[in-house]
Write a protein that binds this DNA or RNA. Sequence first.
RNA 1: GGAGACGUCGCAUAGUUCGGCCUAGUGCACCACCCUGCUAAGGUGGAGAACCCGCAAGGGUUCCGAGGGUUCAAAUCCCUCCGUCUCCGCCA
Length: 421
Amino acid sequence: MIDPQLLRDNPDVIRASQLARGDSAELVDAALAADLNRRSAISESESLRATQKTLGKMVAQASGNEKNTLLAEAQQLAARVKELAQVAADAEAEFTRTVGGIANPIIAGVPSGGEDDFVTLRQVGEKPSFEFEPRDHLELGELLRAIDMTRGAKVSGSRFYFLRGIGARLELALMNMALDTALAHGFEPLITPTLVRPEIMAGTGFLGEHSDEIYYLPADDLYLTGTSEVALAGFHSDEILDLSEGPLRYAGWSTCYRREAGSGGKDTRGILRVHQFNKLEMFSYVLPENAEAEHERLVGLQESMLQACELSYRVIDVAAGDLGSSAARKFDIEAWIPTQDTYRELTSTSNCTTYQARRLDIRSRTESGKTAPVATLNGTLATTRWIVAILETHQQADGSVVVPAALRPYLGGLEVMEPVS
RNA sequence: GGAGACGUCGCAUAGUUCGGCCUAGUGCACCACCCUGCUAAGGUGGAGAACCCGCAAGGGUUCCGAGGGUUCAAAUCCCUCCGUCUCCGCCA
């Protein structure tokens, strides 16, 4: 949810943000009207309620005829109080609905426009070149006996797979390296639930337009999460945090589930786009004034991981229209995928400012002793998809793949992954 | 899955019998000040969250796990849900 105070004091900022995102600016005026309506309805309802309480006390003390008269009066008043309470509740609901439709105001500097309007901030690492025809990750994965799509489909359907042998080990190595990186930078590891209640799913903003991306278990009224961000954000919901010692930082490991409902026949080959994968996710709770610095920090950690994997990548500043409603700014890191001749997203980090925290009611104490919403940020540190980039980038003519030096300690010192004959 | 008990303002509790004097009491912890020649003890006061009105001072409303209901009036009565604990059953 956006800051209602900002809405009242500076609606133009929100209008401009809505336009940059390609969203409705009229919604801002509707929200302002709903806010006025809500406040007058609340005042009216509450003052009548105060009258009712006073009258109730008089009833309790009176007796005889006097009591009967007062009772009759009180009965009439009760009906009216009920009506006004309903009006106020409706006005509140309408305000929440309207304001809830407004996305987080973007941070100055975020490019306007849609998916293709991103700005490339930097490009790092040489794109690999080969003196042979490079194999794609699936072909390599099969040679190494690391990926088995056929059996994945047999057991679970399309977009499911087995990681086996060195594939399974490589994934665990990657996750462990990421975890050590996070640990070294003050993140507390967390293994999170992957089934969550509807309130938490809605609170983190994943039940909006993209709800058909999410697996749902009707028998239990639970959702399977597409990222541990959901549980990590819900972790401190309804709490007042003490951030005086610095931010709270968590590294959440979980399996992630996505229906990929809208992606049609896109990326059907291999493990680039699958229904189930593993991810190590960073999540920070910080004071709002520190959010942008924390965002840079998260990107920095992501870059150090990509560099440790010796991948060629670019960092992009995602355009306003492609942000999702909670993010005020988002940086994606895309790695070069040789056989696709393009960059593909390996990490994403969002600064949600106070938007998500306001919805989940996560606050901290200000110097004056009041409470105020904190800022939340999240970012990927490793996923199964990284295997695609690692295999393709470090492949050799015979189908073997060189293990990046930083990963070797996590694979018992293994230097090269060899094809299995 | 079955049976039972329970959920009160940081923690611990009183209050629920029989609805109104609960504006939710008390202890501990906490903060400020006072007193005291010892890191003890004592005294006085303060202190929760959200929203609304107001420049402010201040005022009002809501919150006793959550949501409904009954009633002039609900921590208290009724219903649903959530959670915790105990026992039984089942099971990695």
